[in-house]
Every structure is written in structure tokens, then in C-alpha cells.
């Protein structure tokens, strides 16, 4: 799943090393536009519903965090 996520993100935000970064939001590497693009793509690909309430920096700071969020939502 992580590879899929990285692939999605790299397409939207080229030039960021998603595999290792852990402060994507806090460091401003990914901004709100990217987040929404990523989220809609994730919803499409993984067939989950991500709510506004879930759009917290801690959920998107790293690929691990995103994967965790999706797993949680898939339950």
C-alpha cells in the first residue's frame, strides 16, 4: 500500500522524497492544495471516505501516517 501511496503523492508533488520525509506538512513540503489532491486520489484508489475532520497535519506528515489513516478508515 505504501508504494501505491508514494506513487500517488509523487505524481502530485514531484521532487519530494516521500519515502523518508516525516514532516511533510510541518515543513511545508506538501500544502493544502496537494493534500486535497492526494486525499481525493486516495479516496478514489482505496475506496475510503476521508472527512474534513481527518485533515490534520499529524495524519499527513509521513507516508506511514497516511497508510495508518487509510487502514483505520478501511476497518
Amino acid at each position: 500500500m505504501k508504494e501505491k501511496i508514494i506513487q500517488i503523492m509523487s505524481e502530485i508533488c514531484p521532487g519530494v522524497d516521500f519515502a523518508t520525509e516525516t514532516a511533510l506538512i510541518d515543513d511545508g513540503l506538501v500544502d493544502s492544495l496537494d493534500i486535497v489532491n492526494i486525499v481525493t486520489e486516495l479516496m478514489d484508489v482505496f475506496d475510503v471516505e476521508i472527512n474534513v475532520e481527518d485533515l490534520l497535519p499529524e495524519n499527513f506528515n509521513s507516508v506511514d501516517a497516511i497508510a495508518q489513516l487509510i487502514e483505520q478508515l478501511q476497518e
Binding site: 493544502s32 486535497v36 481525493t40 476521508i50 472527512n51 474534513v52
Partner: peptide
């Protein structure tokens, strides 16, 4: 937080996407 996120995740915009 109060306009862009809810708007872009709303049903009409999801459909548009």
C-alpha cells in the same frame, strides 16, 4: 480549514473529480 477542505471534499466536488 473552513472553506477549502469541506468544499473540495464535498459531494458535488467529489463528483466533479
Amino acid at each position: 480549514d473552513y472553506l477549502f477542505y469541506p468544499l473540495s471534499l464535498s459531494k458535488p466536488f467529489a463528483k466533479l473529480g
